[in-house]
Each structure stands twice: as C-alpha cells, then as structure tokens.
Write a protein that binds this DNA or RNA. Structure first.
Lengths: 344, 344
DNA sequence: TAACTTAATGATAGCGCTAACATTAAGTCA
DNA sequence: TGACTTAATGTTAGCGCTATCATTAAGTTA
C-alpha cells in the first residue's frame, strides 16, 4: 500500500487517541471549549501538552474554507508613515483570531498585482491595500475575492469595496495656502519618488499657487529616487543656489523637510528667517526639531484602526453605510514657517 | 448525500475539465511547466485565464506538507533598525517562491512565544526570529520545528540553529571608548525601552567607563518607555540640568541622539563644544544632520541578507559550517564628537 | 408517561491539492 | 529485435482538519 509520510508531527487524531475521545471532540475543544464537557476538556488539554500538539493552519483552512488571515499590502516598510498604520492594524487586530499577512509592493503597481494574487490564494478573511491606483487586473481580482476589501491612505470616488484615508491633493493645497498666507512669495516644492500620492500633493500645491498667481515651475524640484533626510538637504541646497530668491519650501514628506532644515543650516541659511520649511505627515520628530517644523498632520494610526473596524463590521454582517471615509488632515504651524520667530 | 460547498471558486479540477486533461497535469503545468508538453500547457494556461483560477495555498501546503512561508518575528515595525533588515529579507527572497510572514512581538518575550506557536502552525519553510532571549517554551518549539531557524540582530554562544548579528555589548563598549579617547570625562548614557539588546549596550558602555575609572551611575538616564526623538531631547535636558558637568552622552539609539542634539540646541548647549553626542545604529540621517552625528554603524541590511542566505543553504542541504556569524559594527566618527569642530 | 427538547459526543465524508505508483507511446542500444 | 530507458500523462489515495448528519443520554413539558 502506498503511503504518505506527512510531516511526522502529532495530529489531532494522536491527541484524540491519547485522550480517549474522537478527533472531532478534540477539534471542538480547541476551537470552542464550551462545547465540550469539563472532564473531557481537561483530558484533551493534557494530551495536547503531552504531545506538544500544534494545529495545522492549512488543514483547518482547507476543511473550513476559511482562513484567519488579513492580507495587508503596503508600498514600503521603511517609511514611517506606513509603520504607524501597520501598528494600528496590529493593535486593532490584537485579541481577535485574525493574523496579519504583510506584503511589500515597493511602490510598484505590478508588484502589488502579483501580491494580490498570492494573497488571494490564501483565501484571506479580508484585505487591506494601500492606494487607489491598482492595475485593472488587480482590481478585478479584488472585486472577485468575495471578502471585505479596504483601500487605505487615500480617498477617491470609486472604491473597490471600502476606503479610508484623506485627500493628498487637499493636503498639498493646504500647505501651499499656509505658506502664501505667511507672506512667502517664492515658494518651492521638494519631492522624492513621486508615487501617485505625492504627485497629487504636488497637484494640490500647484493649484493653490496658481490661484495666487505665484506658481513657478522652476521652483519645483523632484526626483524619482526614494526619499531620505540626506536627499532633502541636497535638493534644498541645489534649489537655493539656482534660485537665490527662494524663500520657502514645501517638502513632500517630513524626511525631506528635516533634511532641508539641516541643508539650510549647513549652507548658513537661517530657518525660518531666510527660508520657511513645511513638511507632510507630521512625524513625531517635527515637534522635537530645532526650530520646530511645520507639517500637515495625517492620522495614519486612525486610518489603520478605522480600516480594521470597517472589516469587523463587514464580517459581522453590518457593512458601514459610508463606504468611503475621509479622516482629513490638520495643519500644524510651527517655528519653521513663523516669520516673526528669532532663534534664541 | 451530504455535501460541502467550499468557497465556490474554480478548482484545479475545473481547469482540468475545461482543458480536457487530468487534474494532476494541471498541477504539474502550474508548478513545473517543463514537465508538461507545450500543447497541453497552452490549453491549460488558457483555461486558467478563462476561469480566473487562483490556486489554493492551503490545499497545496496540506497535500505536500510544505508551505512556502518564511516566518519572520521582529519586536517592532516602527523602528527603522528592523525596517532595514526586513527590506533585506524581502530583497533576498525576491524571485524565490518563498513568502514572508511577518510577526510583531512588540518587545515582549511572551508575545514572541505566542507568535512562534501561531507561525509554526503554518509549517513554515524557515523561521527568522529577533534576539536570543526566547522563552524556554518558545525555544523548545523552535528546536522541535524541524526547519531552519535563524536568530538575528545579536550573537551569543548557544544558537537554536543558526545566528547572525553582532555584539551589542562590544558596540556599547566601543562607543564609550571613543568618547573617552576624545577627552570627554563626564559621559552620560541615555536609554529608552531597555530591552535585552539595549541593556547589553549599557553593560558594554559601563565596562569601558569602569576600566577607565570614570563610571558614574548618576549619569545613566534610562526609561522603559519607547524611544523617540522627543524623548532624547527631554532626557538630555534633564540630565544636563541635574549634572552641569556632563560633557558627552552616548545615546542608546539614533533617535535619542537626534533628539539630544535638538534638545541641546534648544537649551543653548553647543554641540560638540559643550556636549559630545554619539548614537547607535548609524541611520541615514546621522550623516545628514547639522552637525553630523557620530554613531556605531550596524549592518542591518547585511544581517537580513545573510539570514536568508543561511536559510537557502540549509534548505539546499549544505548548512553553513559556521552556525554563528558576527557581522560586527563600525564606529563612524563625525562632528558631534569632534572637540576641535567649530560651527561655521 | 409519551412526545419533545437539549447537551454531549461520535461517524463519515469531504475541503483542493499533490505524492506515489501506473500506464502508454516513443526512442535506444546491444 | 527484444529488453530497456525516457517522456508524457493518468489513477488513486491520502494530507489533517471540520461540516454535516447521526446517536445517545438526560431533562422538560403537558
């Protein structure tokens, strides 16, 4: 007789034999202890410990056609922005049986599509994906997936299922308006990577400046390389050298803003006296910096928490009436854009 | 006859019917296309696309008693240190069929133990776990797991299986020696969270100062709260107020060091003139800061890459002769500990 | 006390895939 | 030319668990 060897690990049947009950009783005792009498439960727990039994997720998922995986796709693990959202997702899932399966799409729509396929092959309980710019194929797969889907970090008119985020366009616009209101007149833009979200921030920035009749494409400095503090310093110095009339910069993110501050300091440009600086996201360090740095605060933690709440609601059969949630943003005005500020 | 409904998705059998072949042929075509004639392969591919077939990972893993999951346990997702290592792991696994399953133990050994159990229930191909301080139960589970295990970020005498990292004790010692050599005499220590690794850095720091007859417990300022730039600023100012003779600080990590720089600037303490600052890890921003910040460079990316290489080797049946790899560290001396430096 | 509910346990048949063996048709070599 | 390899495909029986349908014993109602 042919035989398969398996992994050699103890199975539920081994536990059942040891405890003198049937497999299904062990299965029940492990999944829902109340369904089994206290006497048997004790025997089963003992057998589990004696054998070092660890249940097999795959067998369980196959038999019940249900896994406990929530697939989460983010474009970067290095970026603090997503770290905060991930932390919220982990926190919100704490205590539930659901497990996060994390995927890193590296800011590539093609890679996101590939990962969507891989993740769906695990029959996840739900999916959380970053952004609204999925490929048509990825979108189709997600629509067919038959599980709650939440797109995060952005809002848009056409959710696959649910959506929670904010408008990057409006965020960019608000930052630009603030700099204009502060009296800056030659306002530059520093941008890295230029993924869809940062591109929309630039669009918002541009529209505000155009409304004020102040947009100057020559003051927009972007690169497709990935963002870093170092890069912020490089870009601001290049721009300031090229355009000595530059009096403020809106940085696409806080790393660039911090780098711009350092770059200005190294070049002997006083902040905010000669150069105003505003960032985006309001990471923790912005308040700590010297001078403190103006930024657009985004609720990254709230986005993660909200996404999980929406998933729980959908799984409970009470899908939210509002499929698209905009958590907005908040301008944090600090010393780096305060023209009356004088360093001590 | 009783019947189970499954998830209603197309199965490999549906594809087989559509293509006019048997299920096993479809299975082969998908896993190893060369085993199937070109003619059938074409028909099968067509059927897969027509049905939007997505293979079921769980069924596959159950049948083959082999999953394609590499479980990775880190204590934090927010900490850039682990982000770099994770990026390396993702990069090194790119192109292989292996998938990362990421767990966040939140700096808790108990949580790490819980996650080890959950991860092993997926019968992973390999496991990567942070640190060497597993609970006895977790250690036992990993030893029994029958798959390659790599402990990362640290080195120690007694690997579960394999290990790659560096000595935090020596790192702390090297930082302290450098400050002593620079002529600093009242050297403080700023530490947050104080997990096992940061504790060992402190031990190394202490031993170097003791060797020099300079250790002063009053200059050690630690907290168990988590690290942040803001906290670095708070701690350095408290310590400087309490001990005006303080002339240098070794910060447990770079966030604290950056915060210490800002805190000193806000308090009107010049760096490095009145206060030397050294950090740990050498994140990218250290070189960009103004003044540039001294740090102990650790090869976080290398650790991740190396861990994956060790796993591949073990899976290929050629386990590395050297089970414990020490990638060391490198002191990066910069302006913040250069007593001859004068700000421009 | 008959008819009926409830609680606790068990027997059986899949879930969707692949390992192991089986078969067929074609080429290969002494 | 017959014994033998090789390549391509198929048949069957699980992998370890749980959904579904029994079954049994005990309590509950009219």
């Amino acid at each position: 007789m042919r035989k398969r060897k398996g992994a050699g690990r103890p199975t539920i049947a081994d536990v059942a034999t040891q405890a003198g009950v049937s497999s299904i009783t062990v299965s029940r005792a492990l999944r829902d202890p109340q369904k089994v009498s206290e006497r048997l439960r004790g025997r089963i727990d003992k057998a589990v410990r004696a054998l070092n039994y660890i249940p097999d997720t795959h067998a369980s998922a196959l038999a019940s056609s249900r896994s406990n995986v929530v697939g989460v796709l983010v474009p970067s693990l290095t970026n603090n922005v997503f770290a905060d959202t991930l932390r919220a997702i982990y926190d919100a899932l704490d205590g539930s049986p659901l497990q996060v399966q994390l995927g890193n799409s590296r800011y590539s729509a093609a890679e996101q599509e590939r990962l969507v396929g891989i993740f769906l092959s695990q029959r996840p309980t739900a999916m959380i994906v970053s952004g609204i710019d999925q490929t048509p194929t990825a979108r189709k797969m997600l629509e067919d997936a038959n599980c709650p889907i939440v797109q995060i970090m952005e809002t848009g008119p056409d959710p696959i299922d649910m959506m929670v985020g904010f408008s990057h366009y409006q965020g960019g616009r608000a930052a630009a308006r603030h700099l204009i209101d502060q009296g800056y007149r030659h306002i530059g833009f520093l941008g890295a990577r230029m993924d869809p979200r940062t591109t929309r921030r630039l669009a918002g920035f541009r529209s505000a400046l155009e409304d004020a009749g102040m947009f100057d494409p020559d003051l927009v400095k972007t690169t497709t390389t990935s963002s870093s503090v170092t890069l912020g310093g490089v870009l601001v110095r290049e721009l300031a050298r090229h355009r000595p009339d530059l009096d403020a910069v809106f940085c696409n993110n806080d790393d660039l803003a911090l780098g711009a501050l350092f770059g200005a300091q190294k070049a002997g440009i006083s902040v905010p006296g000669q150069l105003g600086i505003a960032g985006f996201n309001d990471l923790e360090m912005m308040e700590a910096a010297c001078p403190t740095l103006t930024s657009i605060r985004t609720d990254r933690y709230g986005i993660g928490r909200h996404a999980v709440n929406m998933i729980h609601a959908a799984l409970d059969g009470t899908p939210p009436l509002q499929k698209v949630v905009d958590l907005g943003f908040e301008l944090q005005v600090r010393q780096s854009t305060d023209r009356t500020y004088r360093a001590t």
